[in-house]
Design a protein around this nucleic acid. Structure first.
Length: 457
RNA sequence: GGCGCGGUGGCAGAAUGGUGAUGCAACGGACUGCAAAUCCGUGAAUCCGGGUUCGAUUCCCGGCCGUGCCUCCA
């Protein structure tokens, strides 16, 4: 089976054919670093992390690029509100972003370009667009001229007439066409800016991705994506800029968009304020449980986020880590074909998880030790491909929420020993008292053939 | 108003033109000193109305409900 992806450009699931099978190149629109990432951001980046992992499994060389947008008016506003420099805001937010994504067990992208590092490339690209008749300067601004591109709107399936008719924004007087969008805008004295042929200014929102993808992945690459809400205007405008600057029929061959996370039905977004940040959730649940919860629905489906979903994800990981704990050291193995096939089918994680459950079940039922180890090995390989079950099982079972550390391990071990003595003396009342006492402090005991193990509730 | 997405058991969530995965929860049993974990078993679902078809949850049309984009947004 070959990798298939749903392509927003064609609105159909397609077999993935790389531009160059010896070097696959994918790009995901990264964060604007002005505030902490919320769990909805986490979902999109987790989906792309999974795509990158699957592609790296299938192809010898994959470059996965995810940018950092570190010049933006929201950052300027944030810096002003905090009384901090823009650099302080972008650096601290970027550091937190990295910590959050690490906790979700995302691989670092191979390239993480920053907008401020590509200003020259943006200016060069804008100059090419002007030279080609696709952009014009007006009152210190440079605008992309949408009517200069006959098939503008292909990705979002909007006609130019529709956009003009539906425009809810007041049209700036310097625009030749209401649909035209900003490539470069002037900066006031107290705003960040760079010298350009059009005076001191800063880039518009979309041009950075066009410049950065061209610099790191080339004018035409394999996959580009992000959240559903980026289809219009962001990705549409990126396509316009890149194709008109490079004279190519496409910018990327496959456009992949992740669905939204909702909070009891409503979209979770910074502007609605109904958000959980990744950082705050990490105080309550292990990052891996968060990762699993985010992958539990297919990436394009709406996912209603809830604490119940997190509880379930954690319970599932308890079960799965229980397999690894019981299996002991597990040898490396090949990812089972069915699991790979599920992931190759447009990243069907729910189907892949059902297969993991079946493997876990088979492990527990298997009586032959060799076969048991083989099942455990396949199980682990499959989970690892999805960025799961990568830590030591004991570390998983000992995770504690922030501020609820409770008993230390020595005290737990001492209590387990005391209970063992009581049981040996058939003093079950005392043994049960000790177990209840530990349970009250968040420690669950399990008596097995190899002795008593424990985990944090 | 334009464009789009979704509606599957109590909950989460796949798949499918012909007996509808999987997990959580519930219930019964095995195991256990009792539990936990694990295993075995039980009950439980395709929004409504038309159409196409031998047959529709799946395809088409209409409706209802929910939700997203069209403005910053993953």
């Amino acid at each position: 089976m070959a990798l298939q992806l749903y392509n927003t450009l064609t609105r159909a699931k397609e077999v993935f054919v790389p531009v160059d099978a010896s070097h696959v190149r994918i790009y995901c629109c990264g964060p604007t670093v002005y505030s902490y990432a919320h769990i909805g951001n986490g979902r999109t980046f987790t989906a792309f992390d999974l795509l990158a992992r699957v592609m790296k499994h299938l192809y010898p060389t994959v470059t996965y690029a995810r940018n950092i947008t570190d010049v933006d008016d929201k950052i300027m506003d944030r810096a002003k509100a905090l009384g901090q420099s823009i650099e302080t805001v972008t650096e601290t937010t970027t550091a937190q972003f990295h910590a959050d994504m690490d906790a979700l067990n995302l691989l670092r992208p191979d390239v993480e370009p920053r907008a401020t590092g590509h200003i020259d490339a943006m200016i060069a690209m804008i100059e090419r667009l002007i030279a080609g008749g696709h952009a014009y300067a007006a009152e210190g601004h440079v605008l992309f001229n949408v009517p200069s591109m006959p098939d503008y709107g292909r990705l979002s399936r909007r006609s130019q007439d529709e956009m003009i008719a539906g425009a809810r924004v007041e049209v700036a007087p310097y625009k030749k066409s209401p649909a035209d969008f900003i490539l470069w805008k002037p900066s006031a004295e107290d705003q960040p800016g760079w010298d350009s042929p059009w005076g001191r200014g800063r880039p518009g929102w979309h041009i950075e991705c066009s410049a950065m993808t061209a610099a790191h992945l080339g004018p035409v690459f394999d996959v580009h994506g992000g959240g559903l809400d980026l289809i219009f205007p962001h990705h549409e405008n990126e396509i316009a800029q890149s194709r008109c600057a490079h004279g190519t029929p496409v910018m990327a061959n496959y456009w992949v968009h992740a669905g939204f996370l909702t909070m009891s039905g409503d979209k979770m977004s910074k502007s609605l304020g109904n958000i959980f940040t990744v950082a705050e959730l990490l105080d309550e649940v292990p990052g891996e449980a968060l990762r699993l919860a985010l992958l539990q629905a297919h990436y394009r489906q709406p996912l209603d986020f809830s604490k119940e979903g997190l509880r379930q994800a954690r319970a599932t990981l308890d079960r799965w880590y229980g397999v690894l704990r019981a299996a002991g050291t597990v040898p490396a193995a090949k990812v089972p074909d069915e699991v790979l096939a599920a992931l190759e089918d447009d990243l069907n994680t729910p189907l892949a998880f059902s297969l993991l459950h079946e493997l876990a079940n088979r492990f527990h039922k298997e009586t032959d030790e060799g076969a048991r180890r083989a099942v455990a090995a396949s199980f682990k390989a499959a989970a690892n491909l999805m960025g799961l079950l990568t830590q030591d099982p004991e570390a998983w079972f000992r995770w504690t929420p922030k501020g609820a550390e409770g008993l230390d391990e020595a005290a737990i071990q001492a209590a387990i020993q005391a209970r063992k003595d009581a049981r040996a003396a058939k003093n079950f009342a005392e043994a049960d008292r000790i177990r209840k006492d530990l349970l009250d402090q968040g420690v669950v005991l399990e008596d097995g053939p190899q002795g008593t193990t424990w985990k944090r509730a």
